[in-house]
Simulated scan of single mutants.
Amino acid sequence: MLTLERLMASEMELAAGDGATYRRVLTENALVVVPGMVLDAEACIKTMDASPPWDSTQFWDAHLVRLTPDSAAVVYTFEGVRGGNTYRAVLSSTYVLRDGVPRLALHQQTQVT
């Protein structure tokens, strides 16, 4: 089942993860929309492998939007600190169940300035 707790646990795992984490969680046709670009699954995996980890992360104000019995979106505010720089954004991730496992199909970030 796609619960808020389960999807936020996936989001936290992705924030702490590398390309291998994204490879395991993304659907084969996933899109990741970040400020200034749209990445397909392979481009996202490569980008995550090249990115240093966050020094710290915070997640708050999470909401679950049920779409179908096998799909849901989670929307929340994220803050990550890396090398003294802070990134804050509102994130939205749409998941589908594949063999009982939540897989990320679409992720979008809107930076908060």
Rank of each mutant, 00 (worst) to 15 (best):
T21D: 02
A89S: 12
R24G: 04
D99P: 10
R23P: 01
A41K: 14
V38Y: 05
F59P: 07
E42D: 14
E42A: 10
R98H: 14
T68M: 08
F78D: 07
L31Q: 09
Q58H: 01
R66C: 06
V32F: 13
P35D: 00
M48V: 03
E79M: 14
M37S: 15
V65P: 13
T68D: 01
N85S: 06
A89H: 06
A20Y: 07
H63N: 12
K46M: 03
V90H: 12
P35W: 01
D61E: 10
T21G: 03
E79S: 09
Y95Q: 00
T68L: 04
P69D: 13
L26T: 06
D49V: 13
V75K: 07
P52M: 07
W54A: 09
D99T: 10
M48Y: 05
A89D: 11
E42Y: 11
A89G: 12
E28Q: 13
T86N: 04
S71A: 15
L64E: 14
L39Q: 08
M48H: 03
N29C: 04
R82G: 03
V34W: 02
R66D: 09
E42P: 01
D49M: 12
D49T: 12
V34R: 11
F78N: 07
L64C: 11
R98V: 15
V65I: 15
T47V: 05
D55P: 00
L97M: 15
R82V: 14
R66M: 08
W54F: 11
L26H: 00
Y87N: 04
A89E: 09
R88P: 03
C44R: 06
A73F: 15
V74L: 03
R66L: 08
L91M: 12
C44P: 03
Y87C: 06
V25K: 00
G100I: 09
D49Q: 14
G100H: 11
G84M: 08
G36N: 08
A73P: 10
A20N: 13
S93H: 06
R23Y: 06
A72C: 09
D55Y: 05
V81E: 15
S92Q: 02
S51L: 06
V25G: 02
E42I: 05
L31S: 11
D70Q: 02
L64M: 11
S56K: 10
S56C: 05
E28A: 14
A20V: 03
V25S: 04
V32S: 14
Y87W: 12
L64P: 10
T86V: 14
Y76P: 04
D61F: 05
C44V: 03
T47S: 15
D55R: 00
T86Y: 05
D55C: 01
T27M: 05
A50W: 07
T47W: 03
L31V: 15
I45L: 06
R82P: 03
L26N: 01
T86A: 08
T21P: 00
T57K: 10
T27S: 07
W54I: 04
H63Y: 14
S93N: 08
W54R: 00
V81H: 12
E28V: 07
D61N: 11
F59A: 10
R66W: 08
Q58D: 05
V90T: 14
Q58Y: 02
P35H: 01
A73Q: 15
L26P: 02
D55M: 02
A89M: 02
A89W: 01
A62L: 13
S51Q: 05
E42Q: 11
D40E: 05
K46Q: 13
S71H: 09
T21R: 01
R88I: 13
R66F: 08
